[in-house]
Simulated assay, not measured.
Amino acid sequence: MDLVSFVVALVAVLIGATGQRMIGMGWGLVVTPAVALVAGPLAAVLVVNLYGALACIIILPKVWREVDWRRLLWIAIPALVLMVPGMLLAKGLDTDLLRVLVGVIAIVGVLITVAFTSRARTHDGPVLRLATGTAIGVLNSSVGMGAPAVGVYSLVSGWQDRTFVATMQPFWVLISGAVVAVRPFVAPEGSPDWPLWAWVVLGVPVVAGVLLGNRLAHLVDRTVVRWAIISLSVLGGAALIVTGAMGLLG
């Protein structure tokens, strides 16, 4: 394990957990590219989902009363159904190619999200919710990057209030928990060969990020946090694309 890359992953986890608590997203966008650099894209899916579920479990008691359970089910059911096909997709792809794919998804997802921010009209309904859940199921289980689909949906539908932040916590507990539970049977070779101390240390910024997010949720301008996450996601995605491309060319 490269120590510098691991430290970068620790910082990304801290930022991702803070953003997840404050604006309901940011975990996958920030953490997946960083962890993929350390453990590879296939192993990153397990790591991102495992610690993402942990972060959301810690956050959930604070926001339980504001969860929109109906909308949660519309999105979560198709995401769960498409989980195994997404894992099989990741299992059949070349590692470096998958690395490039993760980077492209990160950047394109962020750019689409930013583009939709300027739209004045909002749209929502069963078709959009089912499509969002389908995209999340495939992307999250294959490359650990379902967050862009969530971001696009929240902007297109205008769902950016406190219930969005609250609903995303049980949603990711369900989706990420299912990926962690099913993955050993579908892609058992995808677990990173890390020493025990690395798994323990990586949990520290998860807890710290949630606690920091609790303190800052009502004090910091969420627009600033959002743009910080967007910037880091683009940089992380670009780093993945370069790393994967070098592997493919080499």
Rank of each mutant, 00 (worst) to 15 (best):
L10I: 12
L10D: 03
V35W: 10
A34H: 07
M25G: 02
G26D: 09
L37Q: 11
M25N: 00
P33N: 11
A17S: 14
G19W: 03
L37Y: 05
V11C: 14
V31H: 07
L10Q: 09
I23N: 00
V38R: 01
A34P: 08
M25W: 06
I15T: 05
G28D: 04
V35D: 03
L14D: 02
V31I: 15
Q20H: 11
I23A: 06
V13T: 14
G28M: 04
A39M: 09
G40I: 12
W27S: 00
L29S: 02
L14C: 03
L10M: 12
V35C: 07
V13N: 02
A43K: 03
V38E: 08
R21T: 10
P33F: 09
V31Y: 07
T32N: 06
T32I: 05
M25F: 15
W27I: 07
G26M: 07
A39R: 01
T18K: 02
V35G: 03
L37E: 05
A36D: 09
G26S: 13
G28E: 02
L29R: 04
I23P: 01
A39F: 12
A39H: 03
P33E: 10
P41F: 13
I23V: 15
P33D: 11
T32M: 12
R21A: 06
G26R: 06
V38P: 00
L37T: 08
G24K: 06
W27H: 07
P41W: 13
G16T: 09
G24Y: 05
A17N: 03
G40Y: 06
A17Q: 08
R21I: 01
L29K: 02
T18G: 12
A34S: 13
A36Q: 10
A17T: 04
